[in-house]
Design a protein around this nucleic acid. Structure first.
Lengths: 203, 203
DNA sequence: GTTACCAAAATTGGCACCAATAATGCAGCC
DNA sequence: GGCTGCATTATTGGTGCCAATTTTGGTAAC
Protein backbone atom coordinates (compact mmCIF):
# COMPACT_ATOMS: atom_id res chain seq x y z
CA UNK A 1 0.00 0.00 0.00
CA UNK A 2 1.64 3.12 -1.18
CA UNK A 3 -0.43 5.57 0.74
CA UNK A 4 -3.21 5.48 3.26
CA UNK A 5 -6.80 6.41 2.86
CA UNK A 6 -6.61 9.67 4.78
CA UNK A 7 -4.16 10.95 2.22
CA UNK A 8 -6.26 9.73 -0.65
CA UNK A 9 -9.20 11.64 0.75
CA UNK A 10 -7.20 14.83 0.75
CA UNK A 11 -5.60 14.23 -2.62
CA UNK A 12 -8.96 13.57 -4.23
CA UNK A 13 -10.39 16.64 -2.53
CA UNK A 14 -7.51 18.70 -3.81
CA UNK A 15 -7.97 17.38 -7.32
CA UNK A 16 -11.66 18.15 -7.16
CA UNK A 17 -10.87 21.64 -5.95
CA UNK A 18 -8.39 22.14 -8.73
CA UNK A 19 -11.09 21.30 -11.27
CA UNK A 20 -9.36 18.19 -12.53
CA UNK A 21 -12.65 16.36 -12.87
CA UNK A 22 -15.32 17.61 -15.23
CA UNK A 23 -18.47 18.82 -13.45
CA UNK A 24 -21.08 16.10 -13.63
CA UNK A 25 -18.60 13.37 -14.47
CA UNK A 26 -18.58 9.95 -12.84
CA UNK A 27 -15.75 9.04 -10.55
CA UNK A 28 -15.07 5.44 -11.36
CA UNK A 29 -13.49 3.44 -8.61
CA UNK A 30 -11.21 1.52 -10.94
CA UNK A 31 -9.98 4.75 -12.52
CA UNK A 32 -9.24 6.28 -9.15
CA UNK A 33 -7.37 3.16 -8.10
CA UNK A 34 -5.06 3.66 -11.03
CA UNK A 35 -4.84 7.40 -10.57
CA UNK A 36 -3.78 7.24 -6.94
CA UNK A 37 -2.03 3.88 -7.00
CA UNK A 38 -4.14 2.28 -4.26
CA UNK A 39 -6.62 -0.55 -3.95
CA UNK A 40 -10.37 -0.46 -3.96
CA UNK A 41 -10.94 -0.14 -0.23
CA UNK A 42 -9.13 3.15 0.26
CA UNK A 43 -10.77 4.53 -2.88
CA UNK A 44 -14.16 3.63 -1.53
CA UNK A 45 -13.32 5.13 1.80
CA UNK A 46 -12.27 8.38 0.18
CA UNK A 47 -15.34 8.52 -2.03
CA UNK A 48 -17.67 7.89 0.85
CA UNK A 49 -15.98 10.48 3.03
CA UNK A 50 -16.24 13.12 0.34
CA UNK A 51 -19.83 12.21 -0.37
CA UNK A 52 -20.46 12.65 3.34
CA UNK A 53 -18.94 16.09 3.10
CA UNK A 54 -21.30 16.61 0.14
CA UNK A 55 -18.36 17.46 -2.10
CA UNK A 56 -19.42 14.76 -4.54
CA UNK A 57 -22.62 12.89 -5.12
CA UNK A 58 -23.41 9.23 -4.62
CA UNK A 59 -26.08 7.31 -6.41
CA UNK A 60 -26.77 3.75 -5.38
CA UNK A 61 -25.50 1.13 -7.81
CA UNK A 62 -24.35 3.81 -10.21
CA UNK A 63 -21.49 5.34 -8.34
CA UNK A 64 -20.10 8.70 -7.35
CA UNK A 65 -20.04 11.85 -9.43
CA UNK A 66 -18.80 15.40 -9.41
CA UNK A 67 -21.50 18.00 -8.83
CA UNK A 68 -22.75 19.51 -12.05
CA UNK A 69 -21.77 23.12 -12.60
CA UNK A 70 -24.12 26.05 -12.20
CA UNK A 71 -26.78 24.31 -10.24
CA UNK A 72 -29.47 25.78 -8.10
CA UNK A 73 -27.70 24.12 -5.21
CA UNK A 74 -24.63 26.20 -5.87
CA UNK A 75 -26.68 29.33 -5.37
CA UNK A 76 -28.03 27.93 -2.14
CA UNK A 77 -24.54 27.19 -0.95
CA UNK A 78 -23.42 30.71 -1.71
CA UNK A 79 -26.27 32.04 0.40
CA UNK A 80 -25.21 29.77 3.23
CA UNK A 81 -21.70 31.10 2.94
CA UNK A 82 -22.95 34.65 3.04
CA UNK A 83 -24.88 33.91 6.23
CA UNK A 84 -21.94 32.24 7.90
CA UNK A 85 -19.21 34.61 6.87
CA UNK A 86 -21.10 37.80 7.49
CA UNK A 87 -22.38 36.31 10.76
CA UNK A 88 -18.79 35.97 11.92
CA UNK A 89 -17.70 39.45 10.88
CA UNK A 90 -18.07 40.70 14.40
CA UNK A 91 -16.08 37.82 15.86
CA UNK A 92 -13.37 38.37 13.27
CA UNK A 93 -13.03 42.05 14.23
CA UNK A 94 -13.21 41.27 17.93
CA UNK A 95 -10.59 38.55 17.93
CA UNK A 96 -8.07 39.74 15.38
CA UNK A 97 -4.81 40.87 16.93
CA UNK A 98 -2.03 42.88 15.36
CA UNK A 99 -0.24 39.80 14.08
CA UNK A 100 -3.40 38.69 12.31
CA UNK A 101 -3.78 42.05 10.60
CA UNK A 102 -0.17 42.01 9.51
CA UNK A 103 -0.61 38.53 8.11
CA UNK A 104 -3.79 39.49 6.29
CA UNK A 105 -2.06 42.50 4.82
CA UNK A 106 0.72 40.27 3.57
CA UNK A 107 -1.68 37.81 2.02
CA UNK A 108 -3.63 40.62 0.37
CA UNK A 109 -0.37 41.98 -1.06
CA UNK A 110 0.57 38.53 -2.28
CA UNK A 111 -2.74 38.19 -4.07
CA UNK A 112 -2.34 41.62 -5.58
CA UNK A 113 1.15 40.86 -6.78
CA UNK A 114 -0.08 37.77 -8.59
CA UNK A 115 -3.05 39.67 -9.96
CA UNK A 116 -0.74 42.22 -11.53
CA UNK A 117 2.16 40.07 -12.64
CA UNK A 118 0.86 36.53 -12.66
CA UNK A 119 1.38 33.61 -12.83
CA UNK A 120 -2.39 33.45 -12.76
CA UNK A 121 -2.69 29.81 -11.87
CA UNK A 122 -1.53 30.82 -8.39
CA UNK A 123 -4.45 33.17 -7.85
CA UNK A 124 -6.77 30.50 -6.56
CA UNK A 125 -4.52 29.35 -3.76
CA UNK A 126 -3.55 32.90 -2.86
CA UNK A 127 -7.22 33.75 -2.63
CA UNK A 128 -7.92 30.73 -0.44
CA UNK A 129 -5.04 31.65 1.80
CA UNK A 130 -6.36 35.18 2.28
CA UNK A 131 -9.91 34.17 3.01
CA UNK A 132 -8.87 31.27 5.23
CA UNK A 133 -6.77 33.59 7.33
CA UNK A 134 -9.54 36.16 7.46
CA UNK A 135 -12.06 33.63 8.72
CA UNK A 136 -9.46 32.17 11.05
CA UNK A 137 -9.52 35.41 13.01
CA UNK A 138 -12.96 34.39 14.25
CA UNK A 139 -11.28 31.59 16.27
CA UNK A 140 -13.85 29.04 15.26
CA UNK A 141 -11.99 26.25 13.51
CA UNK A 142 -15.16 24.25 12.94
CA UNK A 143 -16.55 27.15 10.94
CA UNK A 144 -13.37 27.57 8.91
CA UNK A 145 -13.46 23.88 7.99
CA UNK A 146 -17.12 24.04 7.12
CA UNK A 147 -16.65 27.04 4.83
CA UNK A 148 -13.73 25.29 3.14
CA UNK A 149 -16.07 22.40 2.37
CA UNK A 150 -18.83 24.71 1.20
CA UNK A 151 -16.39 26.43 -1.16
CA UNK A 152 -15.69 23.14 -2.82
CA UNK A 153 -19.36 22.74 -3.55
CA UNK A 154 -19.62 25.89 -5.60
CA UNK A 155 -16.55 26.67 -7.59
CA UNK A 156 -14.22 23.77 -8.14
CA UNK A 157 -12.50 25.37 -11.06
CA UNK A 158 -10.08 28.22 -10.54
CA UNK A 159 -10.81 29.48 -14.03
CA UNK A 160 -14.45 30.01 -13.25
CA UNK A 161 -13.87 32.88 -10.92
CA UNK A 162 -12.03 35.59 -12.65
CA UNK A 163 -13.07 36.32 -16.16
CA UNK A 164 -11.03 39.41 -16.71
CA UNK A 165 -8.22 41.48 -15.38
CA UNK A 166 -10.32 44.25 -13.93
CA UNK A 167 -12.32 41.79 -11.88
CA UNK A 168 -9.12 40.37 -10.46
CA UNK A 169 -7.82 43.79 -9.59
CA UNK A 170 -11.07 44.74 -7.96
CA UNK A 171 -10.85 41.60 -5.83
CA UNK A 172 -7.37 42.59 -4.79
CA UNK A 173 -8.64 45.98 -3.71
CA UNK A 174 -11.51 44.41 -1.84
CA UNK A 175 -9.07 42.29 0.09
CA UNK A 176 -7.30 45.43 1.27
CA UNK A 177 -10.65 46.93 2.17
CA UNK A 178 -11.43 43.91 4.29
CA UNK A 179 -8.13 44.17 6.11
CA UNK A 180 -8.86 47.82 6.82
CA UNK A 181 -12.30 46.95 8.13
CA UNK A 182 -10.75 44.43 10.51
CA UNK A 183 -8.05 46.90 11.59
CA UNK A 184 -10.65 49.54 12.43
CA UNK A 185 -13.08 46.98 13.94
CA UNK A 186 -15.73 47.94 11.41
CA UNK A 187 -17.75 44.71 11.64
CA UNK A 188 -20.69 46.04 9.64
CA UNK A 189 -18.39 47.23 6.89
CA UNK A 190 -16.58 43.91 6.85
CA UNK A 191 -19.85 42.03 6.62
CA UNK A 192 -20.92 44.15 3.68
CA UNK A 193 -17.61 43.63 1.90
CA UNK A 194 -17.76 39.89 2.46
CA UNK A 195 -21.32 39.68 1.28
CA UNK A 196 -20.68 41.59 -1.91
CA UNK A 197 -17.47 39.72 -2.53
CA UNK A 198 -19.15 36.31 -2.28
CA UNK A 199 -22.19 37.25 -4.35
CA UNK A 200 -19.96 38.67 -7.07
CA UNK A 201 -18.33 35.28 -7.01
CA UNK A 202 -15.06 37.02 -6.52
CA UNK A 203 -13.83 34.68 -3.90
CA UNK B 1 -27.70 -8.77 2.74
CA UNK B 2 -30.65 -7.81 4.82
CA UNK B 3 -30.46 -4.10 4.18
CA UNK B 4 -28.39 -1.76 2.12
CA UNK B 5 -25.80 0.70 3.21
CA UNK B 6 -27.89 3.80 2.57
CA UNK B 7 -30.35 2.58 5.14
CA UNK B 8 -27.63 1.73 7.61
CA UNK B 9 -26.30 5.25 7.29
CA UNK B 10 -29.68 6.67 8.19
CA UNK B 11 -30.35 4.16 10.96
CA UNK B 12 -27.01 4.87 12.56
CA UNK B 13 -27.61 8.60 12.22
CA UNK B 14 -30.99 8.22 13.83
CA UNK B 15 -29.56 6.19 16.69
CA UNK B 16 -26.85 8.79 17.20
CA UNK B 17 -29.47 11.53 17.23
CA UNK B 18 -31.55 9.59 19.72
CA UNK B 19 -28.60 9.45 22.07
CA UNK B 20 -28.26 5.69 21.95
CA UNK B 21 -24.49 5.89 21.98
CA UNK B 22 -22.66 7.42 24.91
CA UNK B 23 -20.83 10.64 24.00
CA UNK B 24 -17.17 9.85 23.50
CA UNK B 25 -17.74 6.13 23.05
CA UNK B 26 -16.10 4.07 20.33
CA UNK B 27 -18.25 2.69 17.56
CA UNK B 28 -16.79 -0.71 16.96
CA UNK B 29 -17.37 -2.13 13.56
CA UNK B 30 -18.03 -5.63 14.80
CA UNK B 31 -20.62 -4.35 17.27
CA UNK B 32 -22.41 -2.37 14.59
CA UNK B 33 -22.43 -5.41 12.33
CA UNK B 34 -24.34 -7.27 14.98
CA UNK B 35 -26.54 -4.32 15.83
CA UNK B 36 -27.73 -3.75 12.30
CA UNK B 37 -27.42 -7.29 10.97
CA UNK B 38 -25.07 -6.45 8.09
CA UNK B 39 -21.51 -7.19 7.09
CA UNK B 40 -18.41 -5.13 7.57
CA UNK B 41 -18.46 -3.31 4.26
CA UNK B 42 -21.81 -1.56 4.73
CA UNK B 43 -20.84 -0.70 8.31
CA UNK B 44 -17.65 0.89 7.10
CA UNK B 45 -19.49 2.74 4.44
CA UNK B 46 -21.94 4.14 6.97
CA UNK B 47 -19.20 5.11 9.40
CA UNK B 48 -17.21 6.86 6.74
CA UNK B 49 -20.22 8.74 5.47
CA UNK B 50 -21.13 9.96 8.92
CA UNK B 51 -17.54 10.89 9.65
CA UNK B 52 -17.63 12.88 6.43
CA UNK B 53 -20.67 14.67 7.75
CA UNK B 54 -18.66 15.23 10.90
CA UNK B 55 -21.35 13.57 12.97
CA UNK B 56 -18.80 11.18 14.40
CA UNK B 57 -15.05 11.22 14.63
CA UNK B 58 -12.53 9.01 12.94
CA UNK B 59 -9.08 8.31 14.24
CA UNK B 60 -6.74 6.33 12.09
CA UNK B 61 -6.16 2.78 13.25
CA UNK B 62 -8.27 3.37 16.32
CA UNK B 63 -11.69 3.67 14.81
CA UNK B 64 -14.75 5.86 14.93
CA UNK B 65 -16.23 7.50 17.98
CA UNK B 66 -19.16 9.61 19.07
CA UNK B 67 -18.28 13.22 19.77
CA UNK B 68 -17.68 13.87 23.43
CA UNK B 69 -20.30 15.97 25.14
CA UNK B 70 -19.76 19.58 26.12
CA UNK B 71 -16.71 20.21 24.04
CA UNK B 72 -15.33 23.45 22.82
CA UNK B 73 -16.28 22.30 19.39
CA UNK B 74 -19.91 22.12 20.40
CA UNK B 75 -19.79 25.80 21.30
CA UNK B 76 -18.24 26.53 17.94
CA UNK B 77 -20.99 24.65 16.20
CA UNK B 78 -23.64 26.57 18.10
CA UNK B 79 -22.06 29.80 16.94
CA UNK B 80 -22.13 28.54 13.37
CA UNK B 81 -25.77 27.71 13.76
CA UNK B 82 -26.49 31.17 15.12
CA UNK B 83 -24.81 32.73 12.10
CA UNK B 84 -26.66 30.56 9.63
CA UNK B 85 -30.08 30.65 11.17
CA UNK B 86 -30.12 34.35 11.97
CA UNK B 87 -28.62 35.03 8.55
CA UNK B 88 -31.62 33.39 6.97
CA UNK B 89 -34.22 35.17 9.09
CA UNK B 90 -34.87 37.67 6.36
CA UNK B 91 -35.29 34.95 3.72
CA UNK B 92 -37.65 33.09 6.05
CA UNK B 93 -39.85 36.15 6.48
CA UNK B 94 -39.69 36.99 2.81
CA UNK B 95 -40.59 33.57 1.52
CA UNK B 96 -43.09 32.30 4.05
CA UNK B 97 -46.61 32.12 2.70
CA UNK B 98 -49.84 31.74 4.61
CA UNK B 99 -49.73 27.95 4.47
CA UNK B 100 -46.27 28.00 6.02
CA UNK B 101 -47.44 30.17 8.87
CA UNK B 102 -50.42 27.93 9.51
CA UNK B 103 -48.16 24.91 9.54
CA UNK B 104 -45.72 26.57 11.90
CA UNK B 105 -48.57 27.52 14.19
CA UNK B 106 -49.71 23.93 14.24
CA UNK B 107 -46.26 22.63 14.98
CA UNK B 108 -45.81 25.18 17.76
CA UNK B 109 -49.12 24.09 19.22
CA UNK B 110 -48.12 20.46 18.99
CA UNK B 111 -44.89 21.17 20.87
CA UNK B 112 -46.80 23.10 23.49
CA UNK B 113 -49.31 20.32 23.95
CA UNK B 114 -46.54 17.83 24.57
CA UNK B 115 -44.80 20.29 26.87
CA UNK B 116 -47.88 20.55 29.02
CA UNK B 117 -49.20 17.01 28.93
CA UNK B 118 -46.33 14.87 27.77
CA UNK B 119 -45.29 12.27 26.78
CA UNK B 120 -41.96 14.04 27.08
CA UNK B 121 -39.99 11.66 24.94
CA UNK B 122 -41.83 13.17 21.96
CA UNK B 123 -40.55 16.67 22.65
CA UNK B 124 -37.35 16.23 20.72
CA UNK B 125 -39.00 15.25 17.47
CA UNK B 126 -41.69 17.88 17.84
CA UNK B 127 -38.97 20.47 18.33
CA UNK B 128 -37.08 19.28 15.28
CA UNK B 129 -40.25 19.40 13.25
CA UNK B 130 -40.93 22.99 14.26
CA UNK B 131 -37.43 24.25 13.58
CA UNK B 132 -37.11 22.29 10.37
CA UNK B 133 -40.30 23.84 9.07
CA UNK B 134 -39.22 27.29 10.19
CA UNK B 135 -35.91 27.02 8.34
CA UNK B 136 -37.67 25.43 5.37
CA UNK B 137 -39.44 28.74 4.78
CA UNK B 138 -36.11 30.12 3.61
CA UNK B 139 -36.37 27.84 0.54
CA UNK B 140 -32.77 26.73 0.80
CA UNK B 141 -32.78 22.96 1.18
CA UNK B 142 -29.00 22.79 1.31
CA UNK B 143 -29.06 25.00 4.38
CA UNK B 144 -31.78 22.98 6.08
CA UNK B 145 -29.77 19.80 5.55
CA UNK B 146 -26.61 21.43 6.80
CA UNK B 147 -28.28 22.68 9.97
CA UNK B 148 -29.74 19.24 10.58
CA UNK B 149 -26.22 17.87 10.46
CA UNK B 150 -24.88 20.61 12.70
CA UNK B 151 -27.58 19.85 15.24
CA UNK B 152 -26.37 16.33 15.51
CA UNK B 153 -22.96 17.58 16.43
CA UNK B 154 -24.10 19.43 19.50
CA UNK B 155 -26.94 17.75 21.30
CA UNK B 156 -27.40 14.15 20.46
CA UNK B 157 -29.38 13.41 23.55
CA UNK B 158 -32.94 14.59 23.87
CA UNK B 159 -32.58 14.63 27.63
CA UNK B 160 -29.80 17.17 27.51
CA UNK B 161 -31.99 20.00 26.40
CA UNK B 162 -34.75 20.53 28.78
CA UNK B 163 -33.87 20.34 32.43
CA UNK B 164 -37.10 21.52 33.86
CA UNK B 165 -40.68 22.25 33.08
CA UNK B 166 -40.41 26.02 33.02
CA UNK B 167 -37.66 25.84 30.43
CA UNK B 168 -39.84 23.66 28.25
CA UNK B 169 -42.75 26.01 28.58
CA UNK B 170 -40.59 29.00 27.77
CA UNK B 171 -39.45 27.22 24.63
CA UNK B 172 -43.03 26.64 23.67
CA UNK B 173 -43.74 30.34 24.05
CA UNK B 174 -40.67 31.24 22.05
CA UNK B 175 -41.92 29.07 19.20
CA UNK B 176 -45.13 31.10 19.12
CA UNK B 177 -43.09 34.30 19.20
CA UNK B 178 -41.13 33.10 16.19
CA UNK B 179 -44.28 32.34 14.27
CA UNK B 180 -45.56 35.82 15.04
CA UNK B 181 -42.31 37.37 13.87
CA UNK B 182 -42.63 35.50 10.58
CA UNK B 183 -46.25 36.47 10.23
CA UNK B 184 -45.44 40.15 10.70
CA UNK B 185 -42.23 39.92 8.62
CA UNK B 186 -40.18 41.05 11.57
CA UNK B 187 -36.87 39.61 10.39
CA UNK B 188 -34.79 41.39 13.01
CA UNK B 189 -37.10 40.15 15.76
CA UNK B 190 -36.99 36.64 14.37
CA UNK B 191 -33.21 36.71 14.22
CA UNK B 192 -33.03 37.82 17.84
CA UNK B 193 -35.44 35.07 18.94
CA UNK B 194 -33.51 32.43 17.06
CA UNK B 195 -30.21 33.60 18.45
CA UNK B 196 -31.40 33.62 22.02
CA UNK B 197 -33.16 30.28 21.58
CA UNK B 198 -30.03 28.57 20.26
CA UNK B 199 -27.67 30.05 22.83
CA UNK B 200 -30.00 29.05 25.63
CA UNK B 201 -29.71 25.61 24.16
CA UNK B 202 -33.46 25.50 24.00
CA UNK B 203 -33.61 24.00 20.61
C1' DG C 1 -33.38 6.37 -39.64
C1' DT C 2 -35.58 5.02 -35.16
C1' DT C 3 -36.93 1.88 -31.62
C1' DA C 4 -36.83 -2.33 -28.95
C1' DC C 5 -34.51 -6.22 -27.26
C1' DC C 6 -30.78 -8.84 -25.51
C1' DA C 7 -26.09 -10.36 -24.66
C1' DA C 8 -21.70 -8.81 -23.30
C1' DA C 9 -18.99 -5.65 -20.89
C1' DA C 10 -18.36 -2.53 -17.18
C1' DT C 11 -19.02 -1.10 -12.68
C1' DT C 12 -20.67 -1.11 -7.97
C1' DG C 13 -21.47 -3.46 -3.63
C1' DG C 14 -20.60 -7.11 -0.36
C1' DC C 15 -17.95 -11.07 1.62
C1' DA C 16 -14.16 -13.69 3.61
C1' DC C 17 -9.73 -13.37 4.87
C1' DC C 18 -5.46 -11.64 6.60
C1' DA C 19 -1.96 -7.90 7.54
C1' DA C 20 -1.21 -4.00 10.48
C1' DT C 21 -2.02 -1.56 14.56
C1' DA C 22 -3.75 -0.56 19.15
C1' DA C 23 -5.47 -2.13 23.59
C1' DT C 24 -5.28 -5.17 27.38
C1' DG C 25 -3.46 -8.12 30.83
C1' DC C 26 0.27 -10.17 33.22
C1' DA C 27 4.87 -10.64 35.18
C1' DG C 28 8.88 -8.55 37.00
C1' DC C 29 11.22 -4.77 39.18
C1' DC C 30 11.64 -0.84 42.26
C1' DG D 1 1.59 0.12 45.21
C1' DG D 2 3.35 2.01 40.84
C1' DC D 3 5.91 1.55 36.68
C1' DT D 4 7.86 -0.90 32.70
C1' DG D 5 8.09 -4.35 29.25
C1' DC D 6 6.14 -7.86 26.58
C1' DA D 7 2.89 -11.34 24.92
C1' DT D 8 -1.79 -11.91 23.80
C1' DT D 9 -6.12 -10.29 22.32
C1' DA D 10 -9.02 -7.15 19.93
C1' DT D 11 -9.87 -4.14 16.30
C1' DT D 12 -9.06 -1.54 12.14
C1' DG D 13 -7.59 -1.36 7.37
C1' DG D 14 -6.62 -3.50 2.99
C1' DT D 15 -6.90 -7.31 -0.62
C1' DG D 16 -8.89 -10.49 -3.76
C1' DC D 17 -12.86 -12.28 -5.34
C1' DC D 18 -17.53 -12.71 -6.86
C1' DA D 19 -22.59 -11.44 -6.82
C1' DA D 20 -25.63 -7.81 -8.24
C1' DT D 21 -26.67 -4.03 -11.04
C1' DT D 22 -26.08 -0.81 -14.77
C1' DT D 23 -24.27 0.49 -19.19
C1' DT D 24 -22.98 -0.37 -23.77
C1' DG D 25 -23.12 -2.18 -28.28
C1' DG D 26 -25.06 -5.03 -31.75
C1' DT D 27 -28.98 -6.87 -34.18
C1' DA D 28 -33.65 -7.18 -35.73
C1' DA D 29 -37.95 -5.07 -36.78
C1' DC D 30 -40.55 -1.21 -38.34
Amino acid sequence: MSEDAEKIIERLAQDLRAGQFTPGSWLKQVDLQKRYGVGRAPVRKALEALAGRRLIRHEKNRGYSVHPADTEEADQVLDIRVAIETGFAEAICRNAVEADIVELGGLAAEFEKIAINGPFHLLYDANLAFHGALLGCARNPAMVALVADLRMRTSPAPASQWLDRSRIERSAQEHYDMVEAVRTSDAAGLARLIRDHILQRAD
